[in-house]
Design a protein around this nucleic acid. Structure first.
Lengths: 248, 248
DNA sequence: GCGGAGGTTTGATATATGTCAAAATACGGG
DNA sequence: CCCGTATTTTGACATATATCAAACCTCCGC
């Protein structure tokens, strides 16, 4: 019983999105603008190149030559940068429906690693084709720009988080961000699975894993969330949000 | 004597770049690609809208509607985001020749403030015109994408800095970054003025001003740099770089 | 040149988070 | 189902940076 439920909760994005967007891999890329079905077809013709990845597989590595952006069709990835001295930092977690790979446009070489956090499928979007096509389809062009800009804004938010928030605020921000992104895709914003380890969360938030764990425990003690290792349930969304807005 | 020297050091960017780029405000935007002088002329026609700003003036504020990117023609700006609770964080320092305003493309509304750190001039680049024109000029399109991507990569570097570096490493990274950007524009990479306060540097680096000050002092004691409040001279570039590469 | 204000440096102390270590729990293969 | 391994939790302690406070510059207007 509980086991079956767990399985359902474990794969929410995968199954639902796969059916919902079967011929529309570019949900993220195309959703917010009006595109004629004719044009849409052209855009979708870009998405021929599908590939599957197992947990731990690299979608690309730092230093790889750039040719495509990737639309995540199912599963999820993390991106990380490696420091010369061996330290590595997670710079983002990408879920189904998001676009990944924009770091490489400026240099034609990827500047970070992208690693699958579970079995995942992506569509490669050859960037020169995207550029060519967006010259003819202003709405695609506009949207491409928006996606890139959104990435910039996202990064700014993380800078704020890393630069001026304390451990528990960071974790609250992290959870709420996850919650929002799930909600935006039609999933439960209060119950979800984390695909990444405490250590990865810590790396992303600029904290050590022990600190992350303690913060989780504390939130649970306070009745804000219920944690069972990687299963999260948000019990008091409002109070979690308050944590962010009031500085102390 | 010393006074005269100071003045010269104080305004290196302003005077030199102004003469060097008098009719080429879009150095940053156009430099790395081959553009015919005919096209170049068209692109420069975009740059009609020049405006001056005094120290402390806002180029734009968070919430302002978006219509233009800005090429900084002279002077320098800082960008900052404001948290609900009043905390604010500097997200970047932009110098002459750089492009600012890309945060707003995704939402059509600016998501941060941009404030002049000295008397500055900018060219407004109406974004819809940039888009239109880049549909016809692939090299401009490509370059626009590169600039946006560079912003993403830059942010990733700061995330690394904020997430996994210690105070002195952060300051070293900051100084070296400045040095590089100056060098890229033909200025002395070892002697320069900082336009921002210790508090602003601290905000950018996720540190308190006292910590920044102490780190400066320590670098000076170690013979790495010579600091005279806002005048910096890098004495031992190599050792400063080493600070970054060896985790300590 | 003087005086005041804002910015900077330096010192003493507090605190959040890191570090090290061990126990508890989850997970995967046989 | 059980065992071995990896992850997570919890605890005790160390430390980098924040905080608070005072003295010191520097710049600017008078």
């Amino acid at each position: 019983m509980t086991k079956a439920l767990n399985v359902i909760q474990t794969l929410p994005l995968v199954s639902q999105l796969r059916s919902h967007c079967s011929s529309c891999n570019l949900r993220e890329l195309c959703m917010p603008v009006e595109i004629s079905s004719n044009d849409m077809q052209r855009i979708n013709s870009l998405t021929q190149l599908k590939r599957g990845y197992a947990r731990g597989d690299y979608l690309y590595r730092s230093g790889d030559p750039f040719h495509s952006l990737y639309a995540i069709r199912s599963g999820s990835f993390k991106t990380q940068v490696l420091h010369e001295d061996g330290r590595e930092q997670v710079t983002g977690f990408q879920m189904t429906g998001e676009i990944i790979g924009m770091d490489a446009i400026s240099t034609d070489v990827h500047t970070c690693d992208a690693v699958a956090m579970e079995s995942s499928e992506v569509c490669a979007l050859p960037f020169d084709q995207l550029e060519t096509m967006s010259r003819e389809l202003p709405s695609l062009q506009r949207h491409l720009h928006k996606i890139m800009s959104r990435e910039i804004v996202r990064d700014q938010g993380i800078m704020l988080l890393l630069g001026s928030m304390r451990a528990e605020e960071r974790l609250a921000a992290f959870l709420l961000n996850f919650s929002q992104r799930l909600a935006a895709r039609g999933f439960s914003p209060t119950q979800f699975q984390l695909r990444m380890s405490r250590q990865e969360i810590g790396s992303y938030l600029g904290l050590k894993l022990e600190t992350v764990s303690r913060a989780f425990s504390h939130f649970q003690d306070e009745g804000l969330i219920s944690v069972k290792v990687r299963s999260i349930e948000i019990l008091d969304m409002t109070r979690l949000q308050t944590l962010l807005k009031s500085s102390s």
